[in-house]
Design a protein around this nucleic acid. Structure first.
Ligand SMILES: [Mn+2]
Ligand SMILES: [Mn+2]
Ligand SMILES: [Zn+2]
Ligand SMILES: [Zn+2]
Lengths: 162, 162
DNA sequence: GTTTTCGCGCAACTCTGTTGCATTAGAACT
DNA sequence: AGTTCTAATGCAACAGAGTTGCGCGAAAAC
């Protein structure tokens, strides 16, 4: 009956509750989707997953994501495809988000690299005042790396034959 | 008469020439603007500066920037405001772009930190294949840091009086 | 000078995200 | 439970950044 594993739904409901603000179906559902995901999700992906259930306006999804972010229940990552990706916030001390990210150059998937504490101590011009450091590793994910290798192989074959 | 310092214009012309492709007024002008800038410029800024001269369609500016980037005469940086910023490529070995960037949280200005060679050796999940590392330091630039400090000061004063 | 073709200008379009406003529904208080 | 208050939702219209298609113009090759 319930479209989402109860655990995520319940955890989400609890987290929204604790903020003191209104706990709406929309907030709980979106947060549950984020909790269930093992990677950062775009607005499109979130909207798709959430609308297997009741249904929710796209604007509402945008507003809920903004709300979750401002209440530190989620954080967002800017992609080079001009799309924000979101994931549920871990148990980091409020407002840090001090971990690195990996972005696949092939499929666009984004994951958090929770262990990697970004390298501080970058030399800045005088007068500049650092606040946060953002570290993104780009490359091929486990799914795409073999495929890319195979493609390179077959291209080499083709050239050879020709 | 000529709106741009001749040096940049000539360097730009030479660089476009060397690619073997057609050297058009538009390519030369845009590249000259990038060479003259001490920071990364958005499409808007480039269009503005370029149109003090003859005049150029916005789509052409987009296409020229894409062309410059693909020929390694410029590189682009994704901002969290969903806007690309460009600057002329330095003398780095082709296609690396291995330096870090600084972005001001107040005015949005982006500069390249050429000395800072990004920290490699980020531990990845197995099967993942790294290709590039992107390092962005966010904070306040030399122009905005004093202003922000002054603002904090006056806010504290106000609270104190009250 | 003629021909070829690449690049430009213009208009229309797409995609991601925002804003305004009337309506709905949490939750607090009888 | 019913009433009230207000925050949040739904819908429609909008905005900004970048893209696409196509006819025309101007580099450069001949
Ligand atoms: Mn993250
Ligand atoms: Mn750079
Ligand atoms: Zn991938
Ligand atoms: Zn600044």
């Amino acid at each position: 009956m319930t479209p989402m594993t109860p655990t995520f739904h319940d955890r989400a409901e609890d987290l929204v509750q604790r903020t003191g603000a209104r706990v709406t179906r929309q907030r709980v559902e979106v947060l549950a989707v984020l909790l269930a995901a093992r990677r950062a999700l775009s607005h499109h992906e979130i909207e798709g997953r959430v609308n297997r259930g009741a249904g929710m306006d796209r604007v509402t999804v945008y507003r809920v994501l903004e709300w979750l972010t401002s209440h530190h229940l989620a954080h967002k990552i800017a992609g080079d495809d001009r799309v924000w990706r979101f994931n549920a916030a871990g148990d980091e001390p409020e407002r840090t988000h001090a971990h690195a990210h990996f972005k696949c150059n092939d499929c666009g998937e984004v994951i958090c690299l929770d262990e990697a504490t970004a390298a501080r101590s970058v030399p800045l011009p005088s007068g500049f005042h650092p606040q946060e450091v953002e570290l993104t590793v780009k490359g091929l994910c486990a799914g795409c790396a073999p495929a890319a290798a195979a493609q390179r192989r077959s291209r080499a074959h083709a050239q050879h034959r020709h």
